[in-house]
Design a protein around this nucleic acid. Structure first.
Lengths: 188, 188
DNA sequence: TGTATATATGTACATATTTACATATATTTG
DNA sequence: CAAATATATGTAAATATGTACATATATACA
């Protein structure tokens, strides 16, 4: 049971999910490939933390829909109060920014503009996901009812939006600075 | 040559550094242990990207001070325009927040208050590092002179502060929500 | 005096993560 | 019609990362 395994149990508190769905939903919080997730699910199934039912689909491949067992919930409850690991953040772009003094100005601008597009897409996506949670969830959150299903998703989305907007603002600020010096072509 | 190796080359654009110093300075952007960094430096030394001079110290163990070679600078310049990897963010705390509906309210509050302390410490540390860069760097940044040594460090610190402040605000907001419901003791 | 921390470098081993290979079906795109 | 993409699950192998061990010196703390 590593951190990702507990993360999968955490996702399953929202209800039954296939391995494929778990892989998709965990990406914003914890990047992992399916090749890492499937073996962990198989292990947790052996240990009795999760169970699955095979579901046949027309027009799509069959899937295994996993759900939490009582033992899985117990494992989750034991994990939460344990010391929480420090956040891991690794961003190649920031390493490139570190040596910006050695970079062609045009390449520097491209680095930041690429990221601006990325953050804008993410912000839009997260807003759509917020909308999908519905007004009932909004009311539960505003009332501080953390037991409400959707409370966790809502506050995590708010955080993700805040982070992306902060980074987007930063990119805009830097691009503004870079444009003060017309080294190279200002137009593309 | 993996991403971390290029990152070490990027740090060395600021001037000669020991492996130990590189390990310390790269932490905010890319977490890595010394056990990963020392072998990479040895490899890059073999390949001629960096060179070192042994420096004897009184009161402290001897060290190897690495610096960039022309080949190292060339490698750096080839790396920058290559496609940039997506940022990797893994935070156990967010996984715990995801299943906040299954958590004891007191544990939830603790989770956020711990993080608030962490972010406050980081913000203070980053502000001290900004101050250490001096007013000359501030002027260079405000003039958009990206070739100035310190431009990269300055804008990276500004970003780190923005991110930490965004997260701190988020934690405060959530703690405020949790206090709306007096489940359990409000005082410690 | 034993224990911890900081400086400083290194290796060995275990674990985590990514990439590549494998398979099957339906849809979209060129 | 061929190629890519999305759904869906899995394994094998390579790489990246973390933990533990190893050594040496100085300082702080109990």
């Amino acid at each position: 049971m590593n951190t990702l395994s507990y993360g999968l149990l955490a996702l399953l508190t929202r209800g039954p999910r296939s391995g494929y769905e778990l892989m998709q939903h965990i990406q914003p919080i914890w990047q992992a490939k399916h090749s890492q997730i499937y073996p962990l699910l198989a292990l947790m199934e052996k240990r009795g933390f999760v169970q699955y039912v095979p579901v046949a689909q027309k027009d799509k491949p069959d899937k295994k829909v996993y759900s939490l067992t009582d033992e899985g919930i117990a494992a989750l409850r034991e994990w939460v109060p344990e010391p929480t690991g420090d956040p891991v953040k690794r961003d190649e772009m920031l390493l490139k920014v570190y040596c910006i003094g050695f970079i062609e100005p045009a390449q520097a601008r491209q680095l930041f503009e690429e990221r601006m597009r990325m953050y804008q897409c993410k912000i839009e996506k997260y807003h759509r996901m917020l909308d999908d949670l519905g007004s009932e969830t909004v009311q539960a959150v505003e009332a501080g009812r953390m037991e409400h299903p959707g409370f966790g998703s809502y506050i995590l989305l708010k955080r993700a939006i805040g982070q992306a907007e902060s980074d987007l603002d930063w990119c805009r600020w830097v691009v503004g600075l870079l444009q003060l010096n017309p080294t190279g072509s200002v137009g593309n």
